[in-house]
Design a protein around this nucleic acid. Structure first.
Length: 115
DNA sequence: ACCTTGACATTGG
DNA sequence: GCCAATGCCAAGG
């Protein structure tokens, strides 16, 4: 029968495509996953993902480049650490999207997603 | 089934 | 740049 892939699965798959050393945003991931306007769902899915270590969740930021976690919270520090490990510069809980922001060509993404 | 909470985005003051 | 209002909708209570 038809596609039985859940929204959560599509979102996790899309997040997994963000290259090392680059970052994206909740809104962009939602769009690329075929769920326009549902950025909040992306955050929800990441928050409830049981195996976060298998996903590059640290590369997903707010549209303005700020981390979604409260500044100086434990998760924020962990995310910052993981980003710096891949040479992404984080200053004041924020990444320069102009420099590290990444957004694939839609056709290219669909290829990678196996469509 | 209703209400509140969120790892959000966009627009308008 | 900051704040409020809206739209969004799955999960938890």
């Amino acid at each position: 029968m038809g596609e039985s892939e859940t929204n959560a699965e599509r979102i996790r798959r899309t997040v997994g495509v963000i290259p090392i050393g680059r970052v994206s945003s909740y809104g962009v991931i939602a769009d690329l996953a075929g769920l326009p306007g549902r950025a909040r769902l992306v955050g929800h899915v990441l928050r409830h993902t049981v195996t976060p270590s298998l996903l590059p969740w640290q590369r997903v930021l707010r549209s303005d480049g700020r981390l979604a976690f409260p500044a100086d919270s434990t998760p924020a520090r962990k995310q910052t650490s993981r980003l710096q490990d891949e040479d992404v510069v984080v200053i004041n809980g924020r990444v320069n999207m102009q420099r590290f922001g990444w957004q694939p060509d839609l056709a290219e993404l669909l290829m990678k997603l196996g469509c």
